[in-house]
Design a protein around this nucleic acid. Structure first.
Length: 492
RNA sequence: CGGGGUGUAGCGUAGCCCGGUAUCGCGCCACGUUUGGGACGUGGAGGCCGUCAGUUCGAAUCUGGCCACCCCGACCA
């Protein structure tokens, strides 16, 4: 296999696609718009799932599973939600095939097997879940319901990209039901914090927390909170969303509960999700022209040990020390791979593990055996140093922590450098074209202005940042008064 | 879905205009020598030329449909 990667500077998209395929993360499948997530890529997704799942459980949520199919009548119940997703749904209309009488060995859809009611392959599960919750909720004593599901969903996208936008993708979707509006809003905000915590502290990707404008809001939500991250090419990526659904779904599915003072009230709802798109964010945030760069906390192998030797005897000698080091590191909870394959030479292995983003590489040769040292190489900085074997476990443990922190700092500095305040629309366009990144600008608060700006520049309002300080100014587009700056960018 | 491009061995390609069963490199297999940044030698295997149909004695090559991917739009987590 050719391991030559397109350089980021030459063609950023091509670099991304090359990297995903060559680092063995995922591949295109025989199915339009659908990818195969390969074992190496899936191992990273599993690490993300593990960390997120623990965070969900620590905040009181439980996992459950709901059907892949949603009867059309349920799907259309919440009007805005249905309308928002209608144009990208896969629909099951039949339940049987039969052999084609005119074409031997081929199958056709059996026209006799048409479903009475079409089934929608879920693009999101609010409908089926709220239909189910109707049966679970009678009294305030049944609330809150704090449920998450790990699932696949299908959205028939016109143009797809590995991990960033695929027709089928994996995600988790939390769906909670609450007695009061305040409690539901608190839940929405809490899950946004969980996402921000995960993306920043595990993925080492800095995010801006904010609220979507009405235009960008989830179909069926009263408010959509989000975290937005900036990729190396200056484009924004929505990394996670948490929706306050108000009583929209409760009303659509008639989910009421009886209060302590015996009154009927509609239930308040939230939903929140992150998907395999996070893999794309991870890849695009840290990787370089040599390949993937993984933050230690998500790497399935944190340290790889490569022996350098002459002959079987040489390998045996090096292996004794290598295995000792491996054990010491494992005792610290570090995941280690000792690659003693004789079928590849050291240089080949170095390049391979760089492509795959293994955070730390240890090389041990006979020269080291004599000196009681090893060579330690960092993937993120591509630097190497010779260190004593004595105390190597502590050194590596600290190094992994340092790499994790350093990746975040580097990404944070980049995001800050690519965040620009502008005062005029000329400046706005100039920054977009020449620098790109996030733009903080005043906006008059109207959908019309937002759409005009989008038409003219392809930039959208990513969010109204939560930590905004009120500041009076004038809208860059309309010149009308504004009370705060909002975050614009071209986005994935 | 509209415009443009591409599709030949696992990967990258030559051949296509001017029709006669496919070139080269990397990778793969065997053996030997090697092993501190993608080793070298010798021998070998691997292809219904994206797919379906048409033209033709004969199609990778000509014509049409379809599929997939890439780029630009529209759409979008």
């Amino acid at each position: 296999m050719s391991k030559e990667l397109t350089k980021r500077g030459e063609d950023y998209s091509k670099w991304y696609n090359d990297l995903v395929v060559k680092a063995d993360l995922a591949d295109h499948s025989a199915v339009r718009g659908c990818m195969v997530i390969k074992p190496y890529g899936y191992s990273i997704w599993e690490n993300m799932q593990k960390a997120l799942d623990k965070m969900f459980k620590d905040t009181g949520h439980q996992n459950a599973y709901f059907p892949l199919f949603i009867p059309k009548s349920l799907f259309e119940a919440e009007e805005k939600n249905a309308e928002g997703f209608a144009k990208e749904c896969a629909i099951v209309t039949h339940y049987r095939l039969k052999t084609d009488p005119n074409n031997k060995g081929k199958l056709i859809v059996d026209p006799e097997a048409k479903l009475e009611e079409e089934l929608i392959v879920r693009p999101t599960s609010e409908a089926i879940i709220w239909n189910t919750y109707k049966g679970w909720i009678e009294s305030y004593r049944d609330l809150p319901i704090l449920v998450n599901q790990w699932a696949n969903v299908v959205r028939w996208e016109m143009r797809t990209r590995l991990f960033l936008r695929t027709a089928e993708f994996l995600w988790q979707e939390g769906h909670t039901a609450h007695a009061t509006k305040d409690e539901a809003i608190a839940e929405t905000r809490q899950m946004l914090e969980v996402y921000a915590d995960f993306v920043e502290n595990w993925m080492a990707v800095p995010v801006v927390k904010g609220v979507k404008t009405a235009n960008e809001r989830f179909a069926g939500a009263d408010d959509t909170y989000c975290i937005e991250a900036l990729m190396q090419d200056g484009k924004a990526l929505q990394a996670g969303t948490s929706h306050f659904l108000g009583q929209n779904f409760a009303k659509a599915f008639d989910v009421k509960y009886v209060t302590k003072d015996n009154k009927q009230e509609y239930v308040w709802a939230t939903s929140w999700g992150v998907s395999t798109r996070l893999m794309g964010a991870l890849i695009m945030s840290h990787s370089d022209d040599n390949g993937l760069v993984l933050p230690p906390k998500l790497a399935s192998t944190q340290v790889v040990i490569v022996p350098i030797y002459k002959g079987d005897e040489g390998l045996a000698k090096v292996s004794i020390v290598a295995n000792e080091i491996k054990k010491k590191l494992q005792a610290k909870g570090i995941s280690v791979k000792y690659d003693d394959r004789d079928s590849q030479r050291p240089g080949w292995k170095f390049a391979e593990y760089e492509l795959k983003g293994i955070p730390v590489r240890i090389a041990i040769g006979e020269r080291d055996l004599a000196n009681g040292t090893v060579e330690v190489a960092r993937r993120d900085t591509l630097t190497k140093e010779t260190v004593a074997i004595e105390g190597i476990d502590n050194l590596i443990e600290n190094l992994l922590t340092e790499i994790q922190a350093s990746l975040f700092e580097k990404a944070k500095a980049r995001t800050e450098n690519l965040t620009t305040k502008v005062e005029t629309f000329d400046e706005f366009k100039k920054v977009l074209d020449e620098k790109s990144g996030f733009i903080l600008a005043h906006w008059d608060g109207t959908s019309e202005t937002e759409e005009k700006i989008k038409e003219e520049t392809k930039a959208t309002i990513r969010c109204i940042p939560l930590n905004n300080t009120p500041e009076s100014g004038v809208c860059v587009y309309s010149g009308k008064p504004s009370t705060q700056r909002v975050l614009f960018a071209r986005a994935y």
